[in-house]
Amino acid sequence: MVKPELENKELFKSGHTACAGCGVAVGLRHIMRALGKDTIVVNATGCTEIFTSAYPKSAWAVPYIHCVFENSAPVAAGISEALRAMGNDHTKVVVISGDGASYDIGFGHMSGMFERGHDVLYICYDNEAYMNTGVQRSGATPWKAHTTTSQVGKQIRGKMQFKKPLTEIVAAHNVPYVATSTSAHYADLQQKVQKAKEIKGPSFLNVLMTCVPGWGTTPSLSMQYLKDAVDTHVWPLMEIENGFSKLSMKPEKKPVEAYLKGQKRFRHLTEEDIAEIQEMIDERWDHWVWKEKVDQERKAGLEASE
């Protein structure tokens, strides 16, 4: 008999079958705490679906639906329309789907949902590859990373393409609230989920989450890698509100090596590779700092003229 104070009273329950140290499971707990009971979760096929909903047991204490891999956005749109038609103006419909579903196979349907402006919060949990099928590359996999479909050989060494800039692509749909976060930045993540939840209309969160087998990392370090991703500027935490971008944190930059080291998917990188990655990250960071400045100045100007 478990002591009552050791009982999980959250909306995302224990007993799910995620790997030990799963960064996604940590993120889901934060997300569900921020969303609360009056929520309907729509989930694409993927790790989360498998480790939370093997019949007959479910880790969800809120209504949850999974249909197929690529349709979580339109399923959510259908629920949202149904609630509206039936006079429910309070329940929030939230998609929680992986990078495979969001960056790739369900991308067009997600784009359609954003363009039409359904009242849906779409959360992409980005662990940077198709983990459920055993770590294959996705549009979210970073440059040079090893996966089972971007292998390291004599002529080609890891993924030859760059990560798709999904956050910016979604923002370009004029989605009123777009933000990034990670599982390890729970205060940032919870605050952003709460903010997104209040939007009447579409909103989007892109949340980086560790995958122990996919990244080849030590389970106990799952949160550390996410902190390093932010501290090295690999994954800037930001908000894009009504088109105006703002960095949520401006950590003093750690060298990118701090993030790459110890991840098996990056262990083949040469010093030149790392230098090149560093250069790219610095450029991207400078871009975001510049963009924040321009956007915020413009915003202040518009507000002043109102």
Binding site: N8, K13, G15, H16, T17, S53, S58, A59, W60
Partner: peptide, 10 residues
């Protein structure tokens, strides 16, 4: 499925 029944998985 019924809510939170994953708790049966120890």
């Amino acid at each position: 499925g019924k809510p939170g029944t994953s708790m049966e998985n120890k």
